[in-house]
Design a protein around this nucleic acid. Structure first.
Lengths: 144, 144
DNA sequence: TAAGATTGAGATCTCAATCTTG
DNA sequence: CAAGATTGAGATCTCAATCTTA
């Protein structure tokens, strides 16, 4: 079954998933959103309250300096605002604006639609295994 | 089986991709290589002769300006050299150096090892389906 | 004008160094 | 000194504009 030369498999995996990512990004682009931006907005919505940039970095599974720049762009888009934390003056928290909440809702709708389009390309009987495989990879994620 | 809220699935897919990609990149980093660099070297090795930057961009499934910069870095690493094409003076071709060939071989060995490590995280009985899923996604790639 | 390559600007990400506050 | 955030440099990628050659 595995007739691929060793090593080539990696390029197929990465290439295939990049193609999927590109489709999802394309669905968000007309809204002025990206997966990175929508992901950060989703974390803030899920938290239900402003998050420190450090906490946001943790939940986005990325480095702090990345969030600094991402929040710069989200703030320029007026989707979040930086607020000082009176309890710890080193900390800066990101707070959703009303426009940020609205854009998050619109982005998730667009993402769900694109997601259905991608899933529809997977043969029906393989879909469950696909979802199970993602569970396997969640372990990889946790190992970072 | 699919108990994920709609939309969240996308973040899991993309998250899994980035985790796998990070593991592969980490395996190449000690060699001074990246997936992007090794991918370009592999295309040149497969071609068996120097390729124009346009042809290389096509095979790497990316934009021309990306290859211009990637070849800049590969040339700085002394893994390829730019050679003029006497038949079409608009064209510039990338040619492997001996060091480029050697680094490609070492990179592929490291990649295969990292690949085995990633595949070993997939339950044995799902492995075949996984490979089959990649075939499905190859269609997505072709649709770019 | 077309095609091939490059450049410039910007998005996303990383790491190392720095600055402020605890 | 630790921790939180930022800045600077650089890798990877995209798009739009430009330059040279066909």
């Amino acid at each position: 079954m595995n007739e691929w030369p060793p090593g080539a498999l990696s390029f197929h995996v990465v290439g295939a998933l990049h193609a999927v990512e590109a489709q999802l990004e394309a669905a968000l682009e007309p809204l002025g959103l990206s997966l990175a931006k929508l992901g950060a907005l989703a974390k803030l919505v899920a938290a239900g309250e402003p998050l420190s940039l450090g906490a946001l970095a943790e939940r986005c599974a990325c480095v702090r300096s990345n969030i600094t720049q991402l929040v710069d762009r989200l703030e320029a888009d007026k989707l979040v605002v930086r607020v000082d934390d009176p309890r710890d003056r080193r900390s800066v928290r990101a707070e959703l604006t009303p426009e940020g909440r609205g854009r998050h809702a619109a982005g998730m709708r667009a993402l769900e639609e694109a997601e259905r389009a991608v899933l529809s390309r997977i043969p029906e009987r393989d879909r469950d295994v696909f979802l199970q495989l993602l569970q396997s990879f969640s372990g990889v994620i946790a190992h970072r």
